[in-house]
Computed example of a mutant assay.
Amino acid sequence: MNQTIDTATARRMAEAGTIRGVSIIGQPGGWSVMLKTGMLEKPLGGQKTDKPRTWRSLDTLTEYLRKDLSIVRIDGVDATHHSSADVHRPGRPDAAARMKRAHEAAAHDAWFRAQVDAGIKEADDPATQWISNEDAEASMEKLLTRLEAEGKGRGTN
């Protein structure tokens, strides 16, 4: 028999109106939720385990209850055993690195989009002077010839 109620079941129970009460219980490292159904009271469990789910922040927990489970009434908060010590969670350096990469990618994406927008704006500007492909190639050929001559003058090939 499950010791906890998973999120999907809790969502269905909330929609059916079978949850009779909700309490938030403080514990070392965070907060958990107790759901009352009839004469039974069970903790809200994690997704992949039959262990009570915990939240570090009371604000995050209440937001989760409101948005994900449509629970807006909480019978009580028991902070007797709550402490902010993070005793249950191991460190996640992989998550920090993943978030850093995600932020870097988002920043690069924003920069890239700004560059594209600026290019489109410049291309659409009637005052923009266009250079033909032939003129661009001729200009590049002159530049390469000049750089080769300068390189030979310094004794390099």
Rank of each mutant, 00 (worst) to 15 (best):
G30V: 02
G30A: 00
G30T: 01
S32H: 06
S32D: 05
M34S: 12
T37R: 06
G38S: 03
G38C: 00
G38M: 03
M39F: 10
E41S: 13
K42W: 12
K42L: 15
P43C: 03
L44Q: 04
L44T: 03
G45C: 01
G46T: 05
G46S: 08
K48L: 08
T49A: 06
D50V: 02
D50H: 02
K51E: 15
K51Y: 11
P52Q: 05
R53D: 03
R53L: 07
W55V: 02
R56S: 13
S57D: 12
S57H: 04
T60F: 09
T60Q: 15
E63K: 14
E63P: 05
E63H: 09
Y64I: 03
L65V: 06
R66S: 13
R66Y: 13
K67Y: 09
K67D: 12
K67F: 13
K67T: 06
D68S: 15
L69N: 04
I74H: 01
D75T: 04
D78V: 03
D78R: 00
A79P: 07
T80H: 03
H81Y: 08
H82S: 05
D86S: 11
V87I: 07
P93G: 04
P93K: 03
D94G: 08
D94K: 07
A95C: 11
A97V: 02
M99H: 09
M99C: 12
K100G: 09
K100N: 14
R101L: 15
A102F: 10
A102N: 06
H103C: 14
H103Y: 14
E104R: 08
A105M: 12
H108S: 11
H108C: 13
D109A: 15
A110N: 13
A110V: 06
A110T: 12
A110F: 06
W111I: 12
R113Q: 09
A114K: 15
Q115F: 02
V116R: 08
D117E: 14
D117H: 08
I120H: 13
K121A: 14
A123Q: 09
A123Y: 03
A123F: 01
D124S: 14
D124G: 09
D125S: 03
